[in-house]
Write a protein that binds this DNA or RNA. Structure first.
Lengths: 346, 346
DNA sequence: TTGTAAGCGTTATCAC
DNA sequence: GTGATAACGCTTACAA
């Protein structure tokens, strides 16, 4: 088809293009009869205004970019991003925005992404990243493009972010293990670059300290959020002369690896190793046994982030006031920790 | 910042905006000295041309839309989509295109997505869908927007698609099980609406028939690709008075559920149940035991799809010639099938 | 309520 | 090799 323009529609409906434009934008001052006639022509010809032309004059796209962490593993491998994205897209859809996910943050020279951003292809951005030196976060901040972050960096606070209290959440998880009589508790850390990694580790240390349990460096493993790293580190833990009786994992993905390692050694969960995870992925109910874990409100993190961003876009007052939203976590007790140990071996 | 335009750059560099435009588009006929001077101004001011203005005149966006299946579970839950998307984005990046994933195919009224597409926000689309009555596929076909599909519908062939031979692939998987002495082989199907579901089932039937094994309807389970459905159906299989000794699953995700069900019954893989999966997800190496499965070249499916699409976009001859590319699969033999059974119980 | 006309920031077609 | 100038398809004062 030859692709009609607003001009064509105007002619076909016997009005000027301003009127068509008014109909398109549901401007109040159009006579109902005229409106209907124009609308009829529009729909019968399947006309849709060209986004570029509209954007050029309004300087808005009504679409927001979604940027995920940069390593392949994370991109789709971890369902928490799916959940967060879902929250974002849900709010966007409601508010008449479109959300588009940048693919290939790793393939593409990041510069290309920046070029798109500077080219104003998005009104704003939701950045999901806890990475303490995310080049993209730096770019966004410097370029002045409106954005909200899920996750944050400690020092140079982003203008607007949504997060959970990772220190507190982890502390509660580890305290749960301690309350069950465990004193030899391993910890699986995430990628060192992520803020939440150090925060969750901090929570672990605080819980131990409160209980008067000395920190044993041998029981702390540097993971990378992946199932594979959970597997490898647990294998190491189990070979220790005095293996841990419990384990706190910084995310649920790693737990899948932990379980495999435990089973391979012919041991059992929770009898030989009690486990507390982090995230509460819906899928983990499929991995035996049901996991006790810290629930993060992933979808809501996405929702709040999108709301904050859109609020900023609508009110476009130049100076954005900072906003930091911290959402609550919950300890979800299931089966992977068993019951209180009879004899708490020192 | 006030956001500079091409006009500003021209003035600052002491040239006309045509010259700046030429530099921007690396047009050959610009004196090197001039080019450098202009480039210098551009970079020092961090100028990037506005996409909308450029798109309006060129009628091209140099970005392609990526559309995934419509249910939440699939969106990120199944890593094969991550792999395919990776292939797509990789090619796009190389060829100077940006690939953007539509979020919220389910939240958003699908009409909104169509509006974007008709609004020419993308030069073309890669649709990942095997759904036999995907409304989006129908829309794309009818609207004349260039697109390539990963997966296809049997009757109304899409113009351009990439796929694997699902019938043959499944047949080989089931034959493997038969060759090991199994005759009581269960099958886990995917969602009924997907072409590959019926194709893989067809392969299963053919393999049985070739071996003279009658089809037992009790051994065929209607799954939905999810781990949960694999779990439920396997529980049912194991309660049969004569449970299967082997199982062919239409994807690897469901196998995770199968494994849990088997373990819950105190049985083992492969001794009590031999398993062949489909996809060969990288992650499954983390689920005990290592899975024998049919490998689908996911990344390459994405690559080929993107290449076909871009080829079409560059050559924009109005009539696109149909192209159907079928990529090979491989049976990857690992540990989940064990060895040949001594006594093949009829 | 409706139409006229002036842009929005680029690229492209001409001349020079 | 470079610079005017006319589009591109829409929105939006301003007039009528």
């Amino acid at each position: 088809m030859p692709q009609l323009t607003i001009e064509d529609i105007a002619r076909l409906a016997g009005v000027s293009r301003s009127t068509v434009s008014r109909v398109l934008n549901s401007h109040p001052s159009v006579r109902p009869a005229v409106r209907d006639r124009v609308q009829e022509v529009i729909t019968s010809h399947g006309y849709t205004p060209q986004a570029a032309a509209r954007q050029l004059v309004t300087q808005r796209t009504r679409s927001i970019g979604l940027i995920l962490p940069d390593n392949v593993y994370n991109l789709f491998g971890n369902p928490i991003f799916a959940l967060m994205s879902q929250g974002v897209s849900q709010v966007c859809a409601q508010q008449g925005y479109t959300s588009l996910l940048f693919m290939g943050r790793q393939d593409m020279n990041e510069q290309d992404m920046f070029k798109m951003l500077r080219g104003r292809e998005f009104d704003g951005v939701v950045l999901i990243s806890s990475n303490t030196n995310d080049t993209c976060a730096a770019f966004l901040k410097e370029s002045g493009i409106p954005y909200t972050r899920i996750g944050h960096e400690p020092g140079q606070d982003d203008l607007r972010y949504v997060d959970v209290d990772n220190v507190e959440a982890a502390r509660i998880g580890v305290k749960h293990l301690i309350s069950l009589g465990h004193r030899h508790i391993a910890m699986l850390k995430g990628l060192a670059r992520d803020t939440c990694t150090s925060d969750r580790y901090q929570g672990y240390k605080e819980a131990l300290e409160e209980a008067g349990i000395p920190l044993d460096p041998e029981l702390v493993g540097d993971g990378d959020w992946s199932t594979a790293s959970g597997y490898e580190l647990t294998k190491r833990f189990l070979q220790l002369e005095r293996p841990p009786t419990a384990l706190f994992s910084s995310n649920d993905m790693m737990v899948a690896g932990v379980i495999r390692a435990v089973h391979e050694q012919g041991r059992r969960v929770p009898e030989d190793l009690a486990i507390v995870g982090f995230d509460d992925l819906p899928q983990t109910t499929m991995i035996f046994p049901d996991l006790t874990t810290i629930r993060q409100p992933c979808v809501e993190l996405g929702i709040r982030a999108a709301e904050m961003l859109i609020e900023q876009l609508e009110h476009d007052t130049k100076e954005t006031k900072p906003m930091h939203v911290i959402l609550p976590t919950t300890l979800v007790i299931r089966e992977s920790c068993g019951f209180k140990r009879r004899s708490a071996v020192s």
